[in-house]
Design a binder for these strands. Structure first.
Lengths: 224, 224
DNA sequence: TCAATGCTTCGATGAGGGACGAACTATGCG
DNA sequence: CGCATAGTTCGTCCCTCATCGAAGCATTGA
């Protein structure tokens, strides 16, 4: 008998289809109400409520009450990263996907991962930033390079954040098997992309669709 | 209702305590047999076998058959990474296991591994036997040295056993990251230790507790 | 205060799946 | 061949837990 962190407890929380659907829905980054999550999961409201209590008790969710609405969200980037990793394994071992649908293809190109950008586009961006030594990557860690502050200030992003969250974090991509950029910097970049309307979010999906001009602008700024 | 990679399926595989224990045990990197995994998980052999089929079917494990032994190992680094990530979340949300309990410390010193001794004590013993050339170790293999028969006969252990099991086997230690001695010789030594009452087994645990005098005797015989 | 809405709790039901013992298969050794 | 050991399959038991309807709180608006 082993001991240590109770991994079975956490995994079994994710292991129920209804809860897995809820968590996947929350990977979009926006907090959702119990009714919305019930709909996403395809269960009745009482059932959803029961699942949400369990996820709360397990520490995977946070709750923000606003009037008679209760907004549930992922507890943090670590939880989001876990879901992403599990998704990666599931995608790797699950050959049951007949063919990648059109929406699926869009997801591989660019999608929201909690609060930052993921997908081929995001992986390419990180690669480029590292190649230009704006960011430094050694092993699993990503750090700011000497020119980072100036570089991002030019785009209107302040990397001198005082937040307790790390500025840079590596997040494993489930479609491409490579890391992309998370952390406050990753979040700021996604904000920028949406703010500048370089891309829009697909409704009811995590997919992020770049407009032709938006793609150009993005590539000029981040890949140029 | 969402679709995509079946994350619930994968998570539920990890979500069973017995299977979680097995996967954690395999995180050491060495492949283990069904019996060893049954012991690790604290379930009977049939139960373990059933769990192993499920893990295999889920694509989380690989299987290498060698004669009548079947060695199970993690399917790859991606799976290992997933376990690691889940462990991280479990550790973060479960503050209940912060400090290593007394039993945990004892486990690191000496414990039963299948049918032989593991832990710091066992690693030290193998080191000493190799240094004195009673045993010969090249790479991953351990063999009897020329003086082995005489040496162990003096302690009352017959290494010329007719058993079909190998006399010496290397086994990777979970606490220390080094190998200790398994095989019939390892088993015989553990028998000797318990028979001479140098140590007793902690109830319901793999920990092995040496008495002060027992420790002295053991060290004189095996480390002297 | 009363109705409407959002959500949780309670209670009953049912199914999935984890547990083990016993029997069966496979490999190895003499 | 016969015996021993390693594993799997089968059958059965039992318990957990997901599910939903109905009822209970809580917040808002009139």
């Amino acid at each position: 008998m082993r001991e240590g962190p109770d991994i079975a407890r956490i995994a079994s929380l994710v292991g129920d289809p209804a809860r897995a659907n809820m968590l996947t829905a929350l990977m979009g980054g926006t907090a959702l109400t119990a009714s919305e999550l019930a709909l996403e999961a395809g269960v009745s409201l009482p059932t959803a409520s029961s699942h949400l209590s369990k996820l709360m008790e397990g520490g995977l969710l946070t709750l923000a009450s606003q009037g008679r609405h209760r907004y549930y969200g992922l507890a943090g980037p670590q939880v989001a990263g876990m879901i992403e990793t599990i998704t990666g394994v599931a995608a790797a071992v699950g050959p049951q996907r007949v063919r990648p649908g059109p929406r699926d293809a869009a997801m591989r190109v660019a999608r929201v991962c909690y609060d930052h950008l993921a997908g081929a586009q995001a992986v390419a961006m990180l690669d480029r930033l590292v190649a230009r030594q704006v960011l430094l990557r050694d092993d699993k860690e990503i750090r700011l390079g000497p020119s980072a502050a100036a570089h991002f200030a030019g785009i209107g992003i302040d990397v001198e954040s005082k937040a307790r969250r790390p500025v840079c974090r590596a997040c494993l991509d489930w479609s491409v098997r490579r890391t992309h950029l998370a952390g406050t910097l990753g979040a700021a970049i996604l904000d920028k992309i949406l703010l500048e309307k370089w891309a829009r979010r697909e409704k009811d999906s995590r997919a992020v669709i770049f407009s032709p001009m938006g793609k150009q602008a993005f590539e000029k700024v981040f890949l140029g």
